[in-house]
Design a protein around this nucleic acid. Structure first.
Lengths: 252, 252
DNA sequence: CTGAGTATTTGACTTAAATCAAACAGTCGA
DNA sequence: TCGACTGTTTGATTTAAGTCAAATACTCAG
């Protein structure tokens, strides 16, 4: 691991090339079941810049839409602000996920996207991706799937925001983050949340005090152990049970 | 109006042909800025069946994904049911709108879709639409826009479900339906809601009693006049003001 | 190492909406 | 036309989560 770290550090950091072929996320980020030659074509349009620092904007609401972004490491938060100045967190994006799919609708970004920690992304220029996906049938399909998945995951979020308890919402978010880290061979039980209590609360339609109280309660019941952003899920099944609207013990 | 009714009834009702060219919704449903010859191509793959009756399913959760559906008249409700049997209304779709965009992700429908009233749709087989959109660059763009719009409208819904008052939610839904009818030269002030209080409540993350109380309150204040599903918005500006989270009179 | 600033936790109290319950109003088939 | 049924309204009460407030625990720059 040290060796690996070192290799990256010694390279000029604006040129940390990884061919899509070699990227450990390639089966996830744009799940491209493409021929090798097609992956080369995709790789040739992907732009890898220097990492974003915590607090850097990837794009801001109103920016012209140029590219979608596959996250390689770190975490991105997207949010929109309404007329009355309120900010609403619309999503958290982890490695292997793609942000920026709000762009094609109006050719500008509706949301803003900001790095929650040091984050590196692959920018995929959308016009070139569109052109490429006319040539490569599988790619067009994958692109449509990508957008459709976003729709489905947004709609899942409705379930959460509509009439579920604060506890169910927090439990769902923890499990979602856990599952998403697990896909990358990371621990599903132990991880560090990239976002603050306040961001969680906003995303879940709660206040930060309520979120904090739920954490305290979960800890008291030995379901999770939470030290600030460091989370250990000790009772995965119990946590899952809490996501079912009525914490109904009978239907376990 | 009687005449019109009759004309439709005398024709074999499975063959009410309308070329996409002639459809009064064509600038809206698939906003296809296409050449005439391309519209012909699109028209050739569109399938127009007999209208759905109230309560008929357009598709059900788990059904293989074959087509997306442009609504010509009537109204469709989509909903998903979670493990614990709870049903969650995920959207209402009015004429000129497209349902079924949950399908491409997994090649099955995640949600179910049901007609809220007599409804006619154009089924657009997705594999043929995909093939066509490889040939017609503008069409590919429009298809991607369609999906991206759905993402954005879903995310707007987050704003509503997260921490806004019952009144703001109901007001937003009324205004949304109003605006969507207005696009079809219908009155923005007077219309008939296609859905029940219970559906509204479910969609908005409220109980039907609360929705009913909000209607009563709006009526008492002469902002809207509501007789069951028949709505007259008498004070459009006042209604708009209610959608801003804090019914703050200062920032009017 | 210190102190300002930010994030989080905890407590006391309030409130908006849920729940429970009952009445009322349309709808539709027999 | 009646009566069952479904959808809607209204009222009384409860409760989960919000609000306000203060203490505590980190973080990071100097």
């Amino acid at each position: 691991m040290n060796q690996h770290q070192q290799r990256i550090c010694t390279a000029p950091h604006s040129k940390v090339y990884t061919h899509c072929n070699d990227c450990r996320l390639n089966s996830i980020c744009l799940p491209l079941s493409l021929e090798f030659s097609d992956i080369d074509k995709l790789d040739s349009i992907v732009q890898r810049g220097k990492p974003l620092q915590k607090g850097d904007n990837l794009y801001r609401s109103g920016d012209p839409f140029k590219a979608i972004y596959a996250i390689r490491s770190g975490a991105i938060k997207t949010w929109s602000s309404s007329r009355d100045g309120e900010e609403k967190v619309t999503g958290f994006y982890l490695p292997g996920e793609v942000v920026g799919l709000d762009g094609p609708a109006e050719n500008i970004h509706i949301n803003s996207a900001i790095a929650l920690q040091t984050t590196s992304v692959c920018a995929i220029p959308f016009d070139r991706l569109e052109a490429l996906s006319r040539q490569v049938p599988g790619l067009q399909r994958n692109l449509l799937q990508l957008l459709s998945r976003e729709i489905n995951s947004d709609q899942k979020q409705f379930n959460l925001l509509g009439r579920t308890s604060a506890e169910a919402r927090v439990a769902s978010l923890l499990l979602s983050v856990s599952a998403r880290y697990e896909r990358h061979q990371l621990s599903a039980q132990e991880f560090t949340l990239p976002m603050s209590r306040s961001d969680m609360a906003n995303f879940l339609g709660l206040t930060l005090e309520t979120v904090s109280r739920v954490f305290s309660s979960l800890q008291k019941r030995n379901i999770v152990s939470a030290n600030r952003k460091d989370i250990v899920i000790t009772e995965m099944l119990a946590l899952r049970a809490l996501t079912h609207k009525n914490g109904d013990e009978t239907c376990r």
